[in-house]
Design a protein around this nucleic acid. Sequence first.
DNA 1: ATAAACCTTATAGCTAGATCTTAGGTCAAG
DNA 2: CTTGACCTAAGATCTAGCTATAAGGTTTAT
Lengths: 141, 141
Amino acid sequence: MYRIGELAKACDINNDTLRFYEKNALLTPSSRSESGYRLYTEKDKNILQFILRAKGVGFTLAEVRELLSIEVNKADNACADVKTLVDIKLADVERKLAELARFQMSLKRLSDACCGGKESAEHCTILEALESNTDNVRHET
Amino acid sequence: MYRIGELAKACDINNDTLRFYEKNALLTPSSRSESGYRLYTEKDKNILQFILRAKGVGFTLAEVRELLSIEVNKADNACADVKTLVDIKLADVERKLAELARFQMSLKRLSDACCGGKESAEHCTILEALESNTDNVRHET
DNA sequence: ATAAACCTTATAGCTAGATCTTAGGTCAAG
DNA sequence: CTTGACCTAAGATCTAGCTATAAGGTTTAT
Ligand SMILES: [Zn+2]
Ligand SMILES: [Zn+2]
Ligand SMILES: [Zn+2]
Ligand SMILES: [Zn+2]
């Protein structure tokens, strides 16, 4: 049995995070002490680690909650259900990746065109590009 | 002169967003009508478009504010100042890209290993991987 | 016995970027 | 002259995932 601080330390998270997970129906301690302290079992710890791993591959807490509801009742769910969650997340991640890649390209182009020197920014192509409605970035001469 | 709704429509944003930008020192209309309505000039519109373009390449509003403070006073700033902002942002974007790429890899591995079939999730390697503390995903047989 | 460390609940605050609500005042058309 | 679109200010609400505070009770070690 772990008390909240012990489990938090063991899993390198904050006590408050455990209370937050409880309030948000992700992990409820199996029991309480006479004085009301939360008591977590090894099984609870495994669930917490499941949560942390799922977070670690990019799932939001809401998505983790869905995964958990399958996990605790595997027999009534199919591989398809699990894979669907993963594939939706994967598509989501890939959409974000594409957006960030666009940001990266634009920023690179802006950076490359600018001399980065100490003289006045009046000739700066970065500002110029942000002022105009074109995608072209002129190179500073 | 544009009233708030006209400018918002012309730039495809919400009226509230313009009020929000004003409150957050990004864009203050050049004048007000007798009855207190905001009146935006063409110059204001250009500033708004600057803001929207900067947002479009990934800058946060706080960063846009910095860019604007250079933009309105180019002579007192150097190319180096502008380029630094862009390069910091670029590094930030690349850090996020790396994290998402890790997510993508993990999710792909999980997805590829799962049969996605209609039978019980009791043998699902996705759940198995999230339960265990290994990075290895066993392929379903 | 007392101090430190730990725990409890409930509630508020944080970031970011809006969006919505309330309770009105203004303006143009029919 | 009234309807409906538009505008005002100030403040609340939303998402996400915590983090902090207040005011108190419990445990453990010395
Ligand atoms: Zn230059
Ligand atoms: Zn430059
Ligand atoms: Zn399967
Ligand atoms: Zn499976």
